[in-house]
Computed example of a mutant assay.
Amino acid sequence: MKKSVIIAGISAAMLLSMGTGALAATKMQEIKAFLNPEIKVKVDGSPIQLKDAKGNAIVPINYKDSNYVPIRAISDALGVAVDYDNETKTITLGEKVDGTAIAQGFDNMYHTKDPDQTTYKGIDYKEAYFDNGKGSRGGSFMLYPKKEHQKLYLQIAAIGEDIEKMEIRDSDNDIILKQVDVVKVEDGLVTIEADIGGVESLYVHYDIKDNSFAFVPLTTSYYR
């Protein structure tokens, strides 16, 4: 059963646990509801403990004979990204239509805005991860999708020699989400896709030889 079907089957209508911003909505109405600890939730046949955004255990709410479960709790259990736009009062589940560049919040010693290092094959990408270290080495950087995105589209190019043994990992759970044996110089800028639904942080690692470089444009690599 697809995850989207599971979500719909658990509850026809769910409450969002997204923090104080949602509570400031002007059209909210007060209701009388009941916490119902007798309701149990299973995913693929296995019982789960629902938790809020802070990791605290929660129970479903019963209102007018319907059970309501926070979307955040269900999305975490199923590994589906969830995000809330307070300005438009919109909840987004799964992959977004518009991408978010990984340049936002990127922090690494090889992060550069130097045009000499952000330009690849005549195109200046403005911001890049440019690993120009010395010697044969393992390169790595962190990304933080914060469970708000479903997919990662990571662009990377090998310069000088091929990039080998590239991995994208769920850093918190030490799970490999994507493996690429080799990124060849001759292939130019390639795009690697990884499913990152429900993932807080990512660890990207690869091996590279001496006198070689790894180039990642941060403005055209993005989350969705």
Rank of each mutant, 00 (worst) to 15 (best):
G19R: 03
E161I: 04
D114T: 01
P70H: 04
R224H: 07
A12L: 12
I208N: 02
A158G: 03
K96A: 14
Q29C: 02
I163W: 00
S11I: 08
E148A: 13
D98E: 15
L202D: 11
D124E: 06
K146V: 13
G160C: 09
N86I: 12
S140F: 01
V5S: 11
R169G: 00
K165V: 03
K209I: 04
Q179N: 08
V199K: 12
I102C: 06
N108W: 02
Q29T: 09
D76Y: 08
V82D: 07
A33N: 09
I175P: 10
S212Q: 04
V97Y: 04
Q29Y: 02
Y144G: 13
V204P: 04
A128H: 02
K40F: 03
M1N: 12
N108L: 00
A24R: 11
S17Y: 05
E38R: 13
D174E: 09
T118R: 05
L16P: 00
Q155F: 03
I175F: 11
Q117H: 12
S66I: 11
D187C: 06
S212V: 07
N108M: 02
T100E: 15
A103Y: 08
S46Y: 06
T88R: 11
H149K: 14
N56V: 01
I31Y: 14
G19K: 03
D195T: 05
S66Y: 01
S221G: 09
S75E: 04
D170V: 04
V185K: 13
I61C: 04
P145C: 10
I176N: 07
L152V: 10
E193R: 08
K151T: 15
N86R: 07
A103S: 12
F130Y: 08
H149N: 15
Y120I: 08
F141M: 00
G122A: 09
A103R: 07
